[in-house]
Structure formats: C-alpha cells, structure tokens
Amino acid sequence: FYCSMCNVGAGEEMEFRQHLESKQHK
C-alpha cells in the first residue's frame, strides 16, 4: 500500500487505513 500524495508506504492495509485517517494525510 502506498500513498503517493504523502510519499508514505504501509506494509499492511490496516496501517494504510490508519494513515488515511490520520492528520498526517494530506
């Protein structure tokens, strides 16, 4: 899983979902 807007990668879907819901996500 990879967030191109934030340049952030996650190994698991749960981690990626937490990123999308976090304040760090743009």
Rank of each mutant, 00 (worst) to 15 (best):
N7A: 15
F1P: 00
M5N: 08
S4N: 14
Q24P: 12
E13V: 02
C3G: 04
S22W: 00
K26C: 13
C3S: 02
M5P: 14
Q24A: 13
F1R: 03
E12H: 00
S22A: 05
Q18F: 02
S22D: 11
E12L: 09
V8T: 14
V8D: 07
E12I: 10
E12F: 06
A10D: 08
F1I: 05
Q24T: 04
R17N: 12
G11L: 09
H19T: 03
H25Q: 02
E12A: 10
M14A: 11
Q18Y: 06
S4D: 15
G9H: 12
E13S: 03
E21A: 08
Q18D: 13
K23H: 08
C6A: 06
F16Y: 13
H19S: 04
H25C: 08
L20V: 10
F16R: 06
M5R: 09
E13Q: 04
G9R: 15
L20I: 14
M14V: 08
Q18W: 00
H19L: 01
K26M: 12
S4L: 01
R17T: 13
G9A: 12
R17F: 11
F16W: 13
R17H: 10
V8Q: 15
E13W: 03
S4G: 05
E15R: 03
G11K: 14
G11S: 13
K26A: 13
G9W: 03
E15A: 07
E12V: 08
Y2E: 01
E21F: 03
C3M: 00
H25W: 00
C6E: 08
K26W: 08
Q18R: 08
G9P: 08
F1M: 12
R17M: 09
E12N: 10
H19F: 00
V8C: 15
H25K: 01
E12W: 02
E12M: 07
H19A: 02
E21D: 07
E12P: 10
M5Q: 12
E12T: 14
C3P: 00
F16P: 08
G9V: 06
C6Y: 00
Q24S: 08
E13P: 07
C3T: 00
E15H: 14
K26D: 09
H19Q: 03
R17I: 06
H25R: 01
G11R: 09
Y2I: 07
M14D: 09
G9T: 14
C6D: 01
Y2A: 01
L20W: 01
F1E: 03
C3R: 01
E13I: 07
H19R: 03
K23F: 11
Y2P: 00
A10N: 09
N7K: 15
S22Q: 02
K23G: 05
G11V: 07
Q18I: 09
F16H: 10
G11D: 14
E15S: 07
E15K: 10
